[in-house]
Amino acid sequence: MYIAITRQQLGDNFRGSARDFVRYLGKENKGKEPEQQEGYFNQEENHIDAERVIAEIDANTAKLKQREPKFYSLVVSPSQRELKHIGNDPEKLRQYTREVMKDYAASFYRDQEVTVKDILYFAKLERERTYSEKDREVKENQAFASKILELQHQARAIKEGREHGDLAKVQEKIQALEAEAPHKQQGKRIVPGMAKEGHQSHIHIIVSRMDVTNSHSLSPGSKFRTSETTLHGQTVKQGFDRDLFYRAAEKTFDAQFGYRRNYVETYHARNLLDKDPKRFFSALLGLPTNEQQAARQLLFKAGVKVPVIPVNKAQLAYKAMMQLKKGIGQALESGSIGI
């Protein structure tokens, strides 16, 4: 499960109003009949139109300064394995989102309990994901892409008479490189912007910075760790516990759908990999044989080269460990593993 929280962009794009962001989220609806378009939903309602989303988010900004974000966006992106487990069912994803937003509310550190009823949010299901420069397949195709682009420039120059050369041979080289590229989809070299195959459903959530009463700020910003401060002579709790939220969202999915999560799919494993790769590697070795085998298969499917693991934990090779960390890190960045 991959979940990301991002503040409203305050540069040239998405300034002030939520309109530009909502327009961006409408990309999958382009060219579809109204009845085929995916609408927004919240905790209680379905089929909410985009104009209402914009109006309510834009109106809920009391007390916020000009350069403060008016909203945050969340992406809830289950792995293909998780999506397969629930049959890629859009209604189950909507149900899960509503439970996740309960976890989101419960992760605020405040003097008074925050519940989902305090949160103003709208969510939208998307069914496609595209390849980006971060994906392993794109990275490993890059050397071929660069050579192909250079040859394409050469072929164009020959056609336009700016260079002399054998156009047929240049085109043959291009075709050969296309065939040699390691990663293809339906016979075509994978490039940034290409839609990914398989189940790719995910949820985008736009959540107001202010609560539903438009009187209290609820910021999940990374700078707002759980802490206490003195305000008007009184101690006040503030902050948002992201670790608590990510762990809770994962447990909610597992409990709601009876999902048996492998160690390498857990948020705990990802956290450990970042902070202490040696402990991550040791924990992987300590798994029961069947779970360790399943973990290795998941890593293999994600394109991670798992080095030969020594029987004796004391023999753990630093080089092998760091190679594994690098491979898993790249898989995580590209969303190949759902942790």
Rank of each mutant, 00 (worst) to 15 (best):
D12W: 05
K32H: 14
Q9G: 14
Y72L: 09
R52G: 00
L74D: 00
P69E: 00
E28P: 14
N13E: 05
S17T: 11
M1F: 09
F14T: 06
Q37I: 12
F14A: 06
E33Y: 10
A50Y: 04
Q9A: 07
E28C: 04
P34W: 06
N29L: 00
A55T: 10
R19I: 14
G31L: 12
V75Q: 02
G16I: 08
D58S: 09
V22N: 02
K65S: 09
R23N: 10
V22W: 11
R67Y: 04
K27H: 08
L25T: 00
R19F: 14
A55P: 15
I48P: 03
V22G: 15
S17I: 06
F41G: 07
S77R: 02
G39R: 02
Q66I: 11
Q37K: 06
P34A: 06
N60P: 07
V76R: 02
Y40V: 02
E38T: 14
E68A: 06
Y24D: 07
D12G: 04
I5F: 00
R67W: 09
H47F: 14
G31A: 02
V75D: 01
G26F: 15
S79H: 02
Q37P: 03
I48F: 09
A59L: 11
F21T: 07
R67I: 02
T61P: 05
Y2H: 02
S79W: 07
G11N: 11
A59P: 07
Y72F: 14
K70Y: 10
T6F: 02
N46M: 00
S79L: 06
E68L: 15
V75P: 00
